Each structure stands twice: as C-alpha cells, then as structure tokens.
Amino acid sequence: MPLGTAIHNIEITCGKGGQLARVASAVAKLIAKEGKSATLRLPSGEVRLVSQNCLATVGQVGNVGVNQKSLGRAGSKCWLGKHPVVRGVVMNPVDHPHGGGEGEAPISRKKPTTPWVILRLEEELGKGKKYNDSFILRRRK
C-alpha cells in the first residue's frame, strides 16, 4: 500500500482478525513503512507500529453521519444498552459501601471500593508493562 492510504479493520497480530478502526466513520492513515513494520495514525490520534504482514481494508468505514443523529430521549439510549451510571456516594449504605451519611459526605473509608468491597485504586492494583507498550510511538490525547 502507498503511504497516506486510508485504511480500517486493521489486525494487530497477524491472522487474529481486524481489531483497530472498526467503528462507524473510522479511518486510520498509513504514515511510514520501515523494515518489517508499518507506522499508523489511528482515529484516536495514537501513532503505533504494526507488522506489514497484518491485513487491513482500504478505505473508510461507512455510516459516516451516525454521530450527528439525535437519539431524542433517554429510552433510546437504553435500547442501545447504555444505562445510567449512578455514583456509590449518592446511594444508601445497603446499596454500596460508599453510601449513607448526611449531605455530601465523603466515602468514609480509607480507599475506594466496588459495591462488592473489592479495592479499586490504580496504585493498589499496579500497572505492569504490557507487550503492546513497545509498539506505541505516541499515546492518544
């Protein structure tokens, strides 16, 4: 493929199937080729390396105007599977560990938890190095 080609449905691992740039109106650009790898600019703004043996589809994904369509009401969003997200702090103590208290009370625990009392702080869980980190040249903004 020549440089500057618009592509979508890109494989990250050869033979695994397309994983990148698959949503409506998504398009990635091929910006460089060197050795066995190609550099892509993804729709998120991320720049990453992919093997030149990986498959991709030339062109842009269809349904370009989907983001301009107004859903009209909250029920339409629910039909798509998007339900309201309620913070634990505004719940009652029986519903969430952060719930209860007078007014805008803090969570009254040392660390944030899930409703099933599993600790949820990124520092607690730790972020290890991932295999893909070496292939990402510039992170998304």
Score class of each variant (00 low, 15 high):
Ser134Leu: 08
Glu122Gln: 08
Leu137Ser: 01
Ala74His: 09
Ser70Gln: 14
Gly100Ser: 03
Glu122Gly: 13
Val23Ala: 06
Val47Asp: 02
His8Val: 00
Asn132Phe: 07
Arg22Trp: 01
Gly17Glu: 05
Lys69Ser: 02
His8Tyr: 09
Leu40Asp: 04
Glu46Met: 15
Leu119Trp: 03
Gly15Met: 11
Asn9Trp: 10
Gly35Arg: 02
Asn67Val: 07
Pro93Arg: 03
Gly100Gln: 02
Arg22Asn: 06
Ile118Arg: 13
Gly17Val: 05
Leu119Gly: 08
Lys16Met: 09
Ala6Glu: 13
Met91Pro: 00
Gly72Lys: 09
Leu80Glu: 14
Asn53Val: 12
Leu71Gln: 11
Lys33Ala: 11
Glu104Phe: 04
Glu102Arg: 09
Lys82Gly: 02
Arg48Leu: 13
Lys141Gln: 10
Arg109His: 03
Gln60Ser: 08
Thr5Leu: 13
Lys130Glu: 14
Pro84Gln: 01
Asn92His: 09
Ser37Glu: 15
Val27His: 04
Gly62Met: 04
Ser51His: 11
Leu55His: 07
His98Arg: 02
Pro115Phe: 01
Ala32Arg: 09
Arg87Glu: 08
Gln68Phe: 12
Phe135Asp: 14
Gly18Tyr: 06
Leu80His: 10
Thr113Asp: 00
Arg87Gln: 04
His83Leu: 12
Thr13Trp: 01
Ile10Asp: 00
Ala24Asn: 14
Val66Leu: 15
Lys77Ala: 15
Gly75Glu: 13
Pro84Cys: 03
Ile7Asn: 12
Glu104Ala: 13
Ala56Thr: 05
Thr13Pro: 00
Val58Asn: 01
Ala21Lys: 03
Leu42His: 08
Val66Phe: 15
Asp133Ala: 05
Arg140Phe: 11
Ala38Thr: 06
Lys16Thr: 11
Val61Gln: 08
Ile7Arg: 07
Arg87Lys: 10
Gly17Cys: 07
Ala105Lys: 05
Val94Arg: 04
Ser70Cys: 06
Leu42Met: 15
Ser134Asp: 10
Leu20Tyr: 14
Lys16Ser: 10
Gln52Val: 12
Phe135Lys: 14
Gly128Ala: 10
Pro115Asn: 04
